[in-house]
């Protein structure tokens, strides 16, 4: 239902899946599975995401660095979290963009070969899947503006999404 997949993402043999959950009761269990490496996924706080395109831009960057062996972090999925953040501080990026045990909603992003379907993983989650289109209801714009350091004047000529994407794409070159 709420699962959106992109097969052969960027011409690779990987399928990108994005799915949004709310009212999750066992996030600590889910996090533990990911941290232990039983499931490969990035667990993102929906409150700091304004649009799926923001995630796509970060994934694109992570895949690029991964395939050129230039990753800053250990795994492809941790790289997605790091790419999403405007900061060059890795643990700070995880803290601001990764979910914590206390939260109840989560945006799950997973890149996998087609043979490994994310269904097994999703069956563990005790919560309600929601359509990706309702993502804006979860976004906390004030936090987004603060985390990405977006001044009001920038929003007079462009959208929050544009400001966010600009920063994700250029963080290795420009630090704000």
């Amino acid at each position: 239902m709420g699962l959106k997949s992109y097969e052969n993402f960027l011409g690779s043999n990987l399928t990108l899946s994005i799915v949004l959950y709310k009212d999750v009761r066992n996030l600590s269990e889910v996090r533990k599975l990911v941290i232990e490496g039983k499931f490969e996924a990035a667990l993102i706080k929906p409150s700091v995401v304004v649009d799926p395109f923001q995630v796509l831009v970060a994934v694109n960057k992570a895949v690029h660095l991964h395939s050129n062996n230039k990753k800053y972090t250990r795994t492809l999925h941790s790289e997605i979290l790091y790419s999403l953040a405007p900061s060059k501080n890795i643990s700070d990026s995880y803290k601001k963009f990764g979910v914590t045990d206390q939260e109840t909603s989560v945006l799950i992003v997973s890149l996998a070969e087609e043979s490994t379907k994310p269904q097994d993983f999703l069956s563990v989650i005790q919560g309600q899947q929601v359509a990706l289109e309702s993502l804006p209801e979860f976004t906390d714009l004030d936090t987004v503006k603060k985390v990405y350091k977006i001044p009001d004047i920038e929003l007079s000529i462009g959208t929050v999404l544009e400001a966010v994407v600009n920063r994700i794409a250029s963080k290795d070159i420009v630090s704000l």
Partner: peptide, 16 residues
Amino acid sequence: LRCRTNGIRTPVIYFV
């Protein structure tokens, strides 16, 4: 990027 943060519209950068 500096243009944009100062209120001058330039193309959005998607990827470098």
